[in-house]
């Protein structure tokens, strides 16, 4: 009898292992508190949104750096390629490209860019082929990135030293634009 229950207990532990692994692997796909859900629930696709001035977003996000102001836009490469442009800023800024699961595909900072100018193009491999065949002017000075993903989002961070450069930081985020290219 006791051996039988030991056997059942071991079966339970094996099942526990399977459930444990399934939960860990499924959270990125089905979680509702991740960055993708917060960003896509509070802004339209292809529209650049200042997250730091959006109260719902800043309340939902935790562990945010008080010196960093953030903006983001959601995109879908199955629809079109993404072009993120903006002004110049001498303050530190950085961009990360995320897939829908919240993994970072690529990141860059203002030293990677040309002349501190924000100009990033994200294309899937098919759009990349058509870009190579007919390069257009938009690509000049742009950081071009190939990502084999569908939906995703880009997050732009900018360092705000103190209140004196608040206007400059807000302008930089307000001038950032997400647009569709290579449809």
């Amino acid at each position: 009898m006791s051996i039988k229950y030991l056997y059942l207990f071991v079966c339970g532990l094996i099942l526990a292992g399977i459930i444990h692994i399934s939960i860990i692997l499924l959270i990125p796909n089905y979680g509702s508190r991740d960055a993708w859900n917060i960003i896509s629930a509070n802004s339209e696709m292809w529209v650049f949104n200042n997250l730091s001035s959006n109260k719902e977003v800043s309340d939902a996000l935790v562990d945010t750096d008080p010196y960093i102001k953030m903006g983001a836009c959601a995109f879908d490469l199955d629809e079109a390629g993404l072009r993120l442009t903006g002004g110049k800023s001498v303050n530190f800024w950085s961009v990360s490209v995320f897939d829908q699961g919240g993994s970072i595909i690529y990141s860059l900072n203002n030293d990677t860019s040309t002349d501190n100018q924000l100009n990033l193009i994200v294309l899937n491999p098919i759009q990349m082929v058509s870009l190579r065949e007919s390069p257009y002017q938009a690509v000049e000075h742009a950081v071009v990135l190939e990502a084999d993903i569908g939906k995703g989002f880009v997050v732009l961070r900018q360092f705000q030293r103190d209140d004196s450069d608040r206007d400059a930081v807000n302008d930089f985020l307000a001038n950032a634009i997400c647009m569709k290219i290579a449809k």
Partner: peptide, 17 residues
């Protein structure tokens, strides 16, 4: 990954910090 997507944070990329 499960932690990052369940606790409402936006992680930093390698080029960011």
């Amino acid at each position: 990954l499960a932690r990052a997507t369940s606790d409402s944070t936006i992680p930093l990329g390698a080029a960011e910090g």
